[in-house]
Amino acid sequence: MENEWSSLKAHVQQLEEKLLKPEIRTSPEELSSLLKDDFFEFGSSGNIWSKNDFMGQEGAGAVNMTLSQFDMHPLSKDTVLTTYRIFDEDKEEHTLRSSIWKYANGRWQMFFHQGTKTKGPL
């Protein structure tokens, strides 16, 4: 069971890291496969976003971010909460991040995401 958990954790971390890649963030097709149709986000900017907001020509826009301190917590048999830190290289800002991922139709998709600015690294 622990081996399954660490395998799942590694997979979901890869999905989170994939969402930071410019070629994924700027592709509405890629974003559509990673985000649930009812996805929403409370951004660190204070904006609220939905999946439809990212389905335009530029997708979610390219970023230069580094993920660290990744952890994952089970919420149910098909839902997990991820928590981690992001350093935005361009803005030189640190944020705390959390996402809820749901498993359906043979794949994991992000349902919710939140970014909260913090004063610096911990």
Rank of each mutant, 00 (worst) to 15 (best):
residue 13 Q to F: 04
residue 51 K to M: 01
residue 11 H to K: 15
residue 112 F to E: 01
residue 111 F to C: 08
residue 64 N to R: 15
residue 47 N to Q: 12
residue 110 M to F: 07
residue 28 P to T: 10
residue 74 P to S: 11
residue 105 N to K: 12
residue 102 K to G: 09
residue 28 P to Y: 13
residue 103 Y to S: 11
residue 31 L to K: 02
residue 104 A to Q: 11
residue 112 F to A: 04
residue 84 Y to N: 05
residue 21 K to H: 11
residue 72 M to H: 05
residue 122 L to A: 09
residue 18 K to M: 08
residue 53 D to S: 07
residue 88 D to W: 01
residue 23 E to L: 05
residue 39 F to Q: 05
residue 94 H to E: 10
residue 100 I to T: 14
residue 96 L to P: 01
residue 46 G to F: 07
residue 93 E to D: 10
residue 114 Q to A: 06
residue 23 E to P: 05
residue 35 L to T: 11
residue 30 E to M: 07
residue 80 V to A: 04
residue 50 S to R: 13
residue 35 L to R: 01
residue 84 Y to Q: 08
residue 20 L to V: 01
residue 97 R to C: 04
residue 40 F to K: 09
residue 6 S to P: 07
residue 105 N to R: 02
residue 88 D to V: 00
residue 100 I to W: 04
residue 85 R to L: 15
residue 88 D to E: 01
residue 113 H to R: 12
residue 94 H to F: 15
residue 31 L to A: 04
residue 26 T to P: 06
residue 77 K to Q: 09
residue 57 Q to N: 08
residue 42 F to P: 01
residue 59 G to L: 03
residue 29 E to F: 13
residue 109 Q to R: 05
residue 43 G to M: 04
residue 8 L to F: 04
residue 71 D to C: 01
residue 95 T to E: 12
residue 95 T to S: 15
residue 89 E to D: 09
residue 30 E to K: 15
residue 8 L to Y: 07
residue 20 L to G: 00
residue 10 A to P: 00
residue 1 M to G: 13
residue 6 S to W: 14
residue 65 M to Y: 06
residue 120 G to A: 06
residue 91 K to Y: 06
residue 115 G to P: 06
residue 105 N to D: 15
residue 29 E to R: 10
residue 90 D to M: 06
residue 97 R to V: 07
residue 3 N to C: 09
residue 115 G to I: 02
residue 101 W to R: 10
residue 54 F to E: 00
residue 44 S to D: 02
residue 48 I to A: 10
residue 96 L to V: 08
residue 42 F to D: 02
residue 36 K to L: 14
residue 114 Q to I: 09
residue 17 E to W: 00
residue 31 L to T: 03
residue 85 R to K: 13
residue 40 F to N: 09
residue 10 A to M: 12
residue 66 T to I: 09
residue 116 T to L: 05
residue 66 T to D: 12
residue 112 F to R: 15
residue 88 D to R: 03
residue 78 D to T: 14
residue 112 F to S: 03
residue 7 S to E: 11
residue 25 R to C: 08
residue 11 H to A: 12
residue 59 G to R: 02
residue 43 G to W: 09
residue 67 L to M: 15
residue 94 H to Q: 08
residue 96 L to F: 01
residue 108 W to C: 03
residue 26 T to Q: 13
residue 7 S to Y: 11
residue 81 L to Y: 01
residue 65 M to G: 02
residue 64 N to T: 04
residue 50 S to I: 07
residue 42 F to E: 02
residue 82 T to C: 09
residue 54 F to G: 04
residue 13 Q to D: 02
residue 61 G to D: 11
residue 104 A to H: 14
residue 78 D to Y: 11
residue 27 S to E: 00
residue 12 V to D: 03
residue 106 G to P: 02
residue 92 E to T: 09
residue 109 Q to I: 00
residue 25 R to L: 10
residue 87 F to L: 12
residue 14 Q to R: 07
residue 24 I to A: 12
residue 13 Q to S: 08
residue 10 A to S: 15
residue 75 L to Y: 14
residue 67 L to Q: 13
residue 69 Q to P: 00
residue 101 W to G: 10
residue 79 T to D: 01
residue 93 E to L: 09
residue 19 L to N: 04
residue 18 K to V: 01
residue 113 H to T: 00
residue 3 N to R: 11
residue 32 S to D: 12
